[in-house]
Design a binder for these strands. Structure first.
Lengths: 346, 346
DNA sequence: CAAGGAAATGATAACGTTGTCATATGTATT
DNA sequence: AATACATATGACAACGTTATCATTTCCTTG
């Protein structure tokens, strides 16, 4: 019943070759005659041979293991990242570990280091906000651990990254509101230590200035990127004597919070209030009205990150091959749904 | 810079003991004097020694690797499962791999088998609908692979499981609607090959019968557990000559779809239509009105599954220890939010 | 006090792969 | 024909751990 898994030795025996030759075939090395290669391949197929990853990684070569390291407690964004990563990993024979890490701990860098070495990880993909912890980045660089960051933050020479231009994106969607005629646009910021927070706010300011407006502190609130964190700020904005006619929440979860508060106050949407978010997660079209938002191609970004990382790994094994470009900026676009409309006149 | 990681040999040297003794200390084996144990421990701490997982798993003992295997393309449910799994894995030193698998492929069982052996996985956690694939279950049982299923389906002697009583839960929430006075309650079913689908529908029927009603085919629709899959069914229900006054969607994502269709048709909620879902995912309170639903403690269930699996692994290593109970049924409860109200009279 | 057994420890093989090195063969260059 | 060099192959060590078995020490028991 419990048939032992065939090893490279069984294959060698079946093919009438040495284990080293089998190894050569497996790894597509040079110096194997076409004829021998054929024989070995056939034996592998017949025995349904699959190399043992533990043995491979013990030799220090590779584990086919990649980890997604994130600090976010597991919101919808993280989920979509994983879908994208998985998509690419599978097709390349890599496997994905997920590791939540407390990015505020004193020894984050050491923990990541241990993780990588204990499990002989081939590389890691980081998402914000771990992406912007200096200690972690220095460690990764010094320990020469292949990694890709998915972050809007400024590019670094010593680490690969994938991003969209968040500042421009935030400006674009603000311009959409301005074009509709909104002049009093509230803003809900994200978490302070998050690279996207300032960029999104910056883009919002850029757009306002383009229309000759200055951001008004009174209608800029602080949120925390979660649904709940936007409820109080939204309530404050909507109870102002002179409330905004539109609100730009720094991500879709918070925008959903704004919608709820608005519904609760009996506003009719989008007539009484336009709302926009950022990210275009799955949630965005499940709320009412469906959110106008900036589409950040999250899954594609994750896919690209995985692709980049795997290319880096290949290059590391065969340094004569093409060196992958270390940074990728993907296009974003404004997705107009039904949560935005021209302001109603008073 | 790139200091080599210390191995068991370094520790042995530092402690003035043999590697086998160090191994004994690491694995809490008998026959080590308190004094020696002390010395070894000290050396391990000083050198920041961490055992190499690849070497451990090559010896066939354990890899500290667990996989979550799922067929769902990655909806919110899957995400919450992973949060729960992770919570428990971390605290026990296990790591989590996520593997999406095409559950309709002819060779699912073989793929799972390969996965486990290639990566020397210690065990797997399955979520629906892979949980109810006979071939996979038989293989797991025959190959003696530790596993836990998170599924409402009938319990099997040869595999551990975690679930809630979905039939009772579905009846409970239907009773909530009936108690409000609803007598014409539409239903949207889930995917046919999913164990929960029939149970939830069954519970709905049970409750109706308790009120002396028979399910009416005209207001029972087929969905697919996704937001989009519920749009057409909801539209059909709401355009009937005699539309239902309430709709029970088999999960929250589909309930969100019903809400959207209702909003779109200008209904005011919950006055014109009550809507309930099932699961209580994060989404449930982000839509408007927040969904009345059955709280399935997804994260806790996943946590319990991880706990159970790890207990099974411990028992397997020390068969004299307590044998963990193979099945757990967690409590559910109806969460009443604002998507339900008595029917408005005509 | 001899004998027997438990407790404590270590030398060495084994897990399944890849890397190093040696060797054998073929083929081009002098 | 002698040399050089690329191609093709295999024997064996190595990776870091655990398991087997042997050995030493200590305590108990008649």
């Amino acid at each position: 019943m419990v048939e032992r898994k065939p090893t490279i030795i069984d294959v060698a025996r079946a093919a009438g070759a040495s284990i080293k030759t089998v190894s050569r075939v497996m790894n597509n090395e040079r110096y194997v005659s076409a004829e021998t290669r054929e024989r070995v391949m056939k034996a592998m197929v017949e025995l349904k041979f699959q190399p043992n990853r533990s043995a491979q990684s013990l030799k220090g070569d590779r584990s086919y293991l990649i980890a997604h390291i994130y600090g976010d407690p597991g919101g919808p964004y993280t989920g979509e990242i994983q879908i994208g990563l998985l998509r690419h990993c599978r097709s390349e024979g890599y496997h994905l570990l997920i590791e939540e890490i407390d990015y505020s701990a004193a020894d984050v860098a050491e923990r990541v280091h241990n993780l990588v070495h204990q499990l002989s990880l081939d590389g890691v993909v980081l998402t914000a906000p771990v992406t912007d912890n200096d200690e972690v980045l220095r460690m990764l660089s010094e320990a020469d651990i292949p990694h890709v960051r998915i972050t809007p933050a400024v590019e670094r020479a010593d680490s690969a990254s994938v991003r969209i231009d968040e500042r421009a994106a935030a400006a674009d969607i603000t311009l959409h509101l301005l074009a509709f005629g909104h002049r009093r646009i509230g803003f809900i910021k994200g978490l302070p230590n998050h690279a996207g927070t300032d960029l999104r706010y910056g883009g919002y300011c850029d757009a306002l200035r383009e229309y000759g407006l200055e951001p008004d502190e009174e209608i800029v609130e602080q949120g925390g990127f979660t649904y709940r964190s936007s409820l109080a700020p939204a309530r404050r904005l909507l109870t102002l004597k002179n409330p905004p006619t539109a609100i730009f929440a720094s991500n879709d979860e918070m925008a959903a919070g704004v919608l709820s508060v608005a519904h609760d106050r009996g506003l009719s949407l989008p007539t009484d209030l336009s709302v926009v978010g950022f990210d275009d997660i799955q949630l965005s079209e499940m709320v009412w009205p469906p959110l106008t938002t900036v589409r950040q191609p999250i899954q594609d970004m994750a896919d690209a990150a995985a692709e980049l990382l795997i290319a880096m790994l290949a290059h590391r094994r065969q340094p004569d091959g093409p060196k992958p470009a270390p940074h990728r900026v993907l296009p974003h676009n404004v997705v107009i749904r039904r949560s935005t409309a021209p302001p109603s006149r008073r």
